[in-house]
Structure formats: structure tokens, C-alpha cells
Amino acid sequence: MAIADADDFLPEALQFRPSAPLVDIGANLTHESFGRDLEAVIQRARAAQVTTMIVTGTDLTHAEQAVALAKQYPGLYATAGVHPHDASRWDKNLERDMAALHAMPEVVAVGECGLDFNRNFSTPQEQERAFEAQLALAVESGLPLFLHERDAGQRMREILHVWRDDISHAVVHCFTADRDTLFGYLDLDLHIGLTGWICDERRGHHLRPLVSDIPLELLMVETDCPYLLPRNLPAKLKGRRHEPALLPWIVREIAQWQGISEAELGAATTQTAQRFFRLPTES
């Protein structure tokens, strides 16, 4: 399992090279913690067969940074949106700037956008206003949606039900909610993104029995790094910063609960991500 080209940041026990390429659909590589060693992070990801990474843009600044990374590094792509925490900043100027980003070839989804009624850094009314505006941008651009939802499943489903015939694909990234919410999203033909949350025995236990109910053609995998470091790792990591090279450990956990091999899950989620984000397939 050791990866000869990886540096010593990852202990040998964590150097995991699966048999087929993987797509990390949610990597916050514009986070300040990656500023000192991004080049090495990307090299480690590629050594671990994570050959494609979707860099999440959660506001105008980070979306622009994500696009810049996508231009610099082959295999990186960007999303562009306004997270519900920042929904109070939504205005016509921001709408115009986001629309311009959505026209760029490096941008493969509208988002991260949605609803978060857990912390309410922006009011629910502000969140809904910004969310619906971004749904309209997704319709205009034809791009899929990269969605965030926390403690807002019912309202999210109500809004998406109204828009469902007009938008294309949508993925609820970092899904952590309950059975009813999951089936509500699946009934809307939404994709589901799973993270290292499922590797956490303290809070991911309720999610594990639901994994096998997610059709493979609607399932994708992500790190959401540098957050949500998996707790199933066989060795400690310096600094506890999550990164895309650890995605294979998440795939291993999800495959166990799907009841299929890691290779089958990896191949299926990669194919789904390539189709969802309209990515080129590797020859």
C-alpha cells in the first residue's frame, strides 16, 4: 500500500492507493491551512489515485480562488456560489459576479448554496432569498447544483420541489441527516455526497444503515477537507488536517456499508461524478 512518491507528511500506514481513479467532489483547497503546501497536497492526492478534485467556492473570493486553482492544476475544477452563512451579503452586484463565474469553463457547478438553520449566521429569510436567486442562476447557466443543508431538510425539499423541473442535476453535499430527509431527496432524484462523517462512530452511526439505500448512480464521495478528518484511520495524522489523499479511507468505509467492494464503489462514484459534473473521462 505504500506510495513511493508521497512525502513523509502522511504516515506510511495512511498511504493508500486504490485500483481506480477517484473524484473528490468537495475539497476546500482555498482554505488557509493549505497555503503552505498545496503543491504537495495535490501530489499526495494524485499518488492516492484522487485524480480529480472539485474545489468548493463558498463566496465570491473563494470561488475566484477556486477558479484560479483550476486554471493552474490539471484535474481541478471549481464551484461558485454563496454559502447560506453568507446569504445576507447577496445583492445584484454579487449576482452579476456569480453569473460571470458560471460562464467560465473551470466552473462545473453552482454552489455551495442552500439552507443552514442550525446556526443562522444569516436569517432564514436571507438564506431563502439567496438560495432561490442561485437556483435561478443554475437554470440560466444549465449547471448542476452543489447544495448545503443543515437542520433545514423540510424547507429545502419544499423549495427544490418547486424548482425541480427547471434545474438539472443537484447534489446534497456532506449529507448527515436522517432517513426521512434522505428519502425525500432521493424522491426528488437528487444526488448524495458522503464524507468522513460516516467514519465517526460518535455521530455517524445513524447514517451507516442508510448507505445501502442510496443508489450508486446517485452517490458521490468527498473529503470536505480540511474538515471532517475520518476517525477510521489506522495512524495519527500530524496537525489533524484532512486532505484529498485520505479519500480512499472514506471509500473503504462507505463500501462496507454499501455491501460492495471498494473497487466497485470507487468506480461507480467516479463514473457518477464524471457524468454529474460533465467531466472528461480518463482514457
Rank of each mutant, 00 (worst) to 15 (best):
H191K: 13
R179E: 14
T195H: 08
R203H: 10
G196F: 03
H206V: 09
G153E: 11
R164I: 02
M156T: 03
D165H: 15
T176A: 07
L228Q: 05
L186K: 12
P209F: 03
V211C: 10
I167A: 03
I198H: 09
L190P: 04
V221Q: 14
D213M: 14
E217N: 15
V171W: 00
D187K: 15
H169A: 15
R208M: 02
L190M: 11
R179N: 14
V162S: 11
K236L: 10
K236D: 05
L182Y: 00
G196R: 01
G204Y: 04
L229M: 03
D187F: 11
G204T: 04
L210I: 05
L207M: 04
V221L: 15
P226M: 02
E158L: 08
S212D: 13
C225I: 02
H161A: 14
F146H: 11
L229D: 00
E149T: 14
I214C: 00
L188I: 07
A152V: 02
V171M: 05
D166P: 02
L190E: 00
K238Q: 09
G193M: 06
L194Q: 03
M220W: 07
T181Q: 12
R157Y: 06
H205L: 12
I198K: 04
H173N: 01
H242C: 09
L194I: 12
H173R: 10
H191P: 04
S168P: 13
H169Y: 15
E201P: 13
E149Q: 15
P230S: 07
C174P: 04
H169N: 15
P215Y: 03
E222C: 07
D200W: 06
A177S: 12
N232F: 05
G204N: 04
T223C: 10
L228C: 10
L216A: 10
F175D: 00
L216Q: 13
I198W: 08
A235H: 08
Q154P: 00
H242R: 10
R164N: 01
I214R: 00
A177G: 12
E217I: 07
D151P: 11
H173I: 02
H148G: 07
A152R: 08
S212T: 14
R164H: 01
G204W: 00
M156C: 01
T223S: 10
D165A: 09
K238I: 04
G184P: 04
N232L: 06
G204M: 04
D200Y: 07
H205P: 14
F175G: 03
V162Y: 12
T176H: 10
S212R: 15
R231D: 08
D151H: 14
C174G: 06
L229G: 02
L190N: 05
A177C: 08
T181D: 10
E149H: 15
A177V: 05
A170Q: 03
V172M: 13
G184W: 05
L188A: 01
D200A: 12
L145A: 07
L218N: 15
H206S: 09
I167E: 02
E222H: 12
L160R: 06
R208I: 01
L219P: 00
P230C: 05
G239A: 03
